[in-house]
Design a binder for these strands. Structure first.
Lengths: 220, 220
DNA sequence: CGACACCTTGAAGAGGTTCAAGAAATGTGG
DNA sequence: CCACATTTCTTGAACCTCTTCAAGGTGTCG
């Protein structure tokens, strides 16, 4: 939330969160077709959001962690268009959207904050489109790892070590690759001494090499 | 814009548009790194938005036509993060964003409308992620064509005929394919009698076959 | 009319997928 | 607590789709 607010403004914003919900691993916070009422701020834990098509395909559209906002897809048609599934036991703050709009009208900082959150999501998705549209498998996985550690680091976790909350298949779905390709690419990174991979336990040994791999795409 | 507004509300909304700008074919409305001030509503003509990476890659993130809104990417950091380039001579309405926020606080319908527009963009990009992440070349091009005619039809144009405003390379960039693949896939559609292709002049002969192609992906 | 940009098509090649088998962790029930 | 079932991950080999490279065709504009 933005800084520099008056006490009365802060009180108003406190009213945003009506309840908290605990979501157990593997269960959904909301799912496709469900009525949209609220946005959710993650208090703790890890989520994935994914689309499911009629023909059974699944596309992971993102992984969300503490502090991030979910549910923006529901605003257009008052219906959620994707599924939000907890990848571990989680807790979220429930923020009814009509109340967000109401308080936004009074507290300029909140209004602008909401706009920024939505814009940030649009920009993030642009980045994913670039990844899916023009990068090769190694670049995709490197981008994915760098993005994850960067976000974890911003939350006080290690810059070099992380535990994946998602399966190879879920990573693959997000990156537009098959799980075997994800696994092979992890192995290759490991062989090259860039990362240490023990199933879902990842240690980044040479972050510069990973960054180089993303920018060195001019070689193709 | 939403319906059912009072005259005073409509007057307020009229104040949104300060100026109009004409953008000649091939020139930019805004570009990456530029300061963000306004959103733009297209009055006439066709745009593409694209990302350019340091290593010279280009990723088209969308094609916009009359009535659609551009510039949402700039809100987060007060900087545009992509380029908006006119694919023909165009005209846009300039809507300063601080004014949008100001009037949004007074006119609830406008506030909600802005939220919907941003949410719609997020949902649209989810669809592109699904396309890029899990569809094969033929499906991608079919989705692209169906989406284009549907939007054109909603604007009063033909359901079956359209003129592409963009090159094969731009289509390819958007769909995550090379221009040769786009060309070949057009030829295949033509051989199969589904569409008639004369360079940028497209006539859809069997729209059901195209739709089937998108949903029949369970065969793979 | 000629230069240029754009599109089409062919042939060879690369990257990722598919199918299959086995290994390593995790969970379950006796 | 151990044995067994299950899920998840790794790795190999064959295959396929899309890309790359190359050449030629078509339309457009000064």
């Amino acid at each position: 939330m933005p800084a520099g607010l008056s006490p009365t403004e802060l009180n108003r914003i406190d009213e945003l969160v009506t309840t908290r919900r605990k979501i157990k691993q593997g269960t959904t916070l909301f799912s496709n077709g469900e009525k949209f009422t609220s946005l959710y701020a993650i208090r703790s834990g890890f989520f994935k959001t994914c689309l499911t098509t009629t023909d059974g395909r699944e596309q992971v559209t993102g992984f969300q962690m503490t502090g991030e906002i979910m549910g923006l897809d529901g605003i257009v048609n008052d219906l959620h268009t994707c599924n939000a599934i907890a990848l571990e036991d989680t807790e979220v703050c429930v923020m009814p959207f009509d109340r967000i709009e109401e308080i936004s009208r009074e507290v300029n900082a909140l209004q602008h904050h909401v706009h920024k959150i939505m814009s940030r999501e649009i920009v993030r998705e642009h980045g994913v489109m670039l990844l899916l549209g023009s990068m090769r498998a190694e670049e995709r996985l490197a981008v994915f790892l760098l993005n994850l550690v960067q976000r974890l680091h911003a939350r006080g976790f290690s810059k070099s070590q992380l535990i994946l909350r998602m399966s190879r298949e879920e990573i693959g779905s997000f990156l537009g690759l098959k799980l075997e390709t994800v696994s092979r690419t992890f192995s290759k990174f490991s062989d090259d001494g860039m990362v240490e991979v023990k199933r879902r336990n990842i240690r980044i040994l040479d972050i510069e090499a990973l960054k180089l791999m993303v920018n060195a795409s001019s070689c193709h």
